[in-house]
Design a protein around this nucleic acid. Structure first.
Lengths: 218, 218, 218, 218
DNA sequence: GATGAATGAGTGTTCATTCAT
DNA sequence: CATGAATGAACACTCATTCAT
């Protein structure tokens, strides 16, 4: 997908990237603490280590910062997931691995995910669709993983079920990020990964053998 | 739980309630449209049908409005769920019914849920814990439903599994509300309810007979 | 002509007028001193005797202040000129009287005229045509005075000459306002009025009979 | 008159002149379009064909650019008028020629004149008197032309009348520049020149003999 | 001499909150 | 109780100017 460009006055691309990285890092910390709206551009500049004037050499509006943050998050997550997809297997193990990886990234990037999750709606009508599309792409990665398993005969799932389960995985990943105040008291990340995967696959594998329904009938 | 009081200058309790209802109704519409931060107190007053001066007779700060909105939403949802719990059954059907009901409420109150979901973090350190506690109470209702099923022998689940699944149900309910831009294209509410329930229970029921795990072991 | 409305948040029309009068008065003084661009809205508010917040209850943008100033100037000048036109004479004396009156107003409103003259171009594409139209109306008043004299046989002038002379009168009036740094050293207002009128009419009357110069010599 | 110096860091005088010419040319175009205040130094630099850093090698403040522009305009106009004065005649025709020339320059340099006219007041207390003096010098040229005619017996005018008429000529010239939105619809430049000259001289000649109107009638 | 990244004081504008009527 | 005019702290954003390279 085409990158939605955020205009900078400074020409040196390397410098732009460096400054934006500083910016994003500072902004995430602030947004996490006080949210996008309660954070001022001056605070962002300060956290990034430069002046307000310099901040505006690299963005055009405050919203650009938010967009840059969201974009960077998705980039990181996508990159990680792509690695799992690269291994062309279609086995249950590769699926499990993908899920575990995703949950792990969500754990590592907890701050960023939280921010993104609560602030996307603040994006303009211009940037929102772009970010949403990125999200769909990530869901699509899980659809891909699931489809491969189905094609491999490891799972029996309808198209719609694949889509729903992909969404579930995605949301459960985010859930670990933004409900950690509740979940952390109950589970370690490893437990969470294991238990969610188990629930997911036990329900889903059951469909392979039709055995699930038996007790209900019996 | 103790109600966290929002102070009003007006003494007449009935009037206070009436005005706040007007206020909440107007505020939800506005928050849904433009979010808490982009909505001004003047707009809230106008949408509520009275002047800015009057608004401040019934609240102390803008944040009070948000708190009132959140509180009202939870009240509505809780009330609805309590009805399901009231019927002391512990059958799978009653669980299914509870889930369906919850998803339905989430659908009906989509606007409110969305608002609450994206704006809670804007609550002060004072109000946030109170709202979070309410959320825990709702999750606890599902734990209760699940526990009864386990006690009734309809399901076999550990304590931790109950808690996780309760969270899952809750999050999937919210998911219908705030991911509807993606889900609505794939499922009707009925399909969504049916499919999610199926996945949830097939995984979970499988545990009753141990049949699910077999393929994994084999 | 339709008044171009400047929107106010305050409803009480009388109050709006009062506050705007304060505002205009303060603004003219400031604009005269430092020009529109170098004057801050805060300064305008202070000069008007209220806070910056209050200022913005009566206008929407800084430019509104400029428009209000221009509008008010034209209103004052027009009003004064209308009185001269009201007396339906068409004599040379009535023309002289009109010119003298105009120059006098320009003298009295020197500050305002200077401001308007130097700052109109700062008006937006929205307000500018409206102000220009007002200016044309004022020129038209002199055309009217001149036309009556021609109809009365007091002067012999072509259509085009009437238009040009009307413009000349208008510009000479302004000239007294914005070139006073040079003119004041040479003439009193009375002298200026007398001499300009003489030049104007001697040239113009001369066309009728050539008699003009005679009485002066005699 | 002493040139008011604008300090430059660069020593090479030829280069300084070259860069400033580029600068003035670009600045006039921009000032005409958006006025002095709405034009940024960056825009000026860009229009001039070099960087902001370079711009500041040749001026000290933004205001210097305005001064340079004004100065350059007067230089051009003066130069042109000096040519007319050089021919030491003192005839009515030479006066007419001078007026026509001035109006023509005002037409050609319309953009510049407009700019200068509307922005002089933005000059600092330092530069303003200098520019005003230049203006007086130009008025003085017309005084000179008129005085010669009087000395030659072609006109009969008092000192004060000479000064006033010189001002009138000057202002009517500018008027063609900054009121062209109104005048262009009524007159061509040629018509304007002819009609203004006629009015001016008929009034003024009339004083000599009262004969002015005669030829027209006869 | 030329460049352009960095700076931060300053600007127009908004909006939660108060309080006299 | 209700109103809405008044307030001013706070904010996003701009731009003239500097200076290290």
């Amino acid at each position: 997908m085409e990158k939605r460009e955020v205009q900078a006055s400074v020409k040196d691309e390397r410098l732009v990237q460096k400054r934006r990285d500083q910016m994003i890092k500072g902004a995430v910390a602030l947004f996490k603490q006080k949210g996008f709206h309660r954070t001022t551009t001056r605070e962002i500049a300060k956290a990034a280590g430069f002046s307000i004037g310099t901040l505006y050499e690299y963005i055009r509006t405050k919203e650009d910062v938010l967009y840059l943050v969201c974009d960077s998050i998705y980039d990181h997550v996508s990159e990680r997931l792509q690695e799992d997809l690269a291994v062309e297997k279609g086995t249950l193990d590769s699926l499990k691995h993908g899920i575990a990886d995703f949950f792990q990234v969500m754990d590592e990037m907890q701050a960023e995910v939280l921010v993104m999750y609560q602030e996307v709606k603040s994006l303009s009508k211009d940037a929102l669709p772009y970010v949403l599309k990125k999200e769909m792409e990530m869901v699509a990665m899980f659809e891909e993983l699931l489809t491969r398993c189905v094609e491999n005969g490891e799972l029996t799932l309808s198209e719609k079920q694949i889509e729903l389960i992909a969404h579930n995985i995605f949301v459960q990943g985010q859930m670990w990020g933004f409900r950690r105040w509740a979940l952390r008291r109950l589970f370690t990340l490893e437990e969470y990964i294991e238990m969610q995967t188990e629930i997911l696959l036990s329900g889903v594998q059951g469909r392979v053998s039709g055995a699930v329904a038996v007790p209900e009938k019996g």
